[in-house]
């Protein structure tokens, strides 16, 4: 018999961890009076992710992500990566949260179909945008790396919106 684990199905099939996360996603819903909201994706493409964060200080007087929630319109991958980024970011300092990469999400999910990799990028972008929003609202000086990341996300967003201009409501 063929060893099923060795079959080349990972380019099209979801891992058990993805399905488990999709079935019972963590931290979905809104946060009222959120300190920062990150809105990424485009409904025309079929993926929209909104990430809400609540920031507090820990004992060392560092800013941490005290609470985080998501609302996502999207596929299995989009919902699973949303749930995973909330798990990864919760309790982390802002600095640590900004270092979360798409590969951290993919690893936690035991892999993603290659065609769905963009969903993990979307989740990372949503968190960056939520943190950026927090800094902006608070009037804090925005760290240069955060600013650069934000600009890159906005630029990609503009390109997509231009592409789907005819569908703008």
């Amino acid at each position: 018999m063929v060893n099923k684990n060795k079959l080349n199905t990972c380019s099209s099939l979801y891992t058990p961890q993805v399905m488990k996360t999709f079935k019972n996603p963590h931290n979905y819903g809104k946060i009222k009076n959120a300190d920062g909201i990150g809105k990424v994706g485009n409904i025309v493409c079929g993926d929209v992710m909104w990430l809400y964060i609540k920031v507090a200080k820990n004992r060392k007087d560092e800013e941490i992500i005290k609470d985080i929630k998501f609302e996502t319109f999207g596929c299995v991958a989009a919902i699973s990566t949303s749930s995973t980024i909330t798990d990864l970011a919760k309790g982390k300092t802002i600095k640590e949260a900004m270092e979360i990469e798409k590969d951290d999400i993919v690893k936690k999910l035991g892999g993603l179909p290659s065609i769905k990799y963009h969903c993990s990028i979307l989740a990372v972008d949503a968190l960056i945008e939520a943190i950026y929003d927090y800094f902006t609202k608070k009037g804090n000086k925005i760290p240069i790396d955060l600013k650069l990341k934000h600009e890159k996300i906005q630029k990609a967003k503009d390109i997509i919106e231009k592409r789907y201009k005819k569908w703008k409501s």
Binding site: I43, W167, S169
Partner: peptide, 20 residues
Amino acid sequence: CSSFKLEPSHVLMATGLRPE
């Protein structure tokens, strides 16, 4: 999301539906 092209069904779009 279910198609290999990541584009919504051209049939539904032809009937006037928006992508979402």
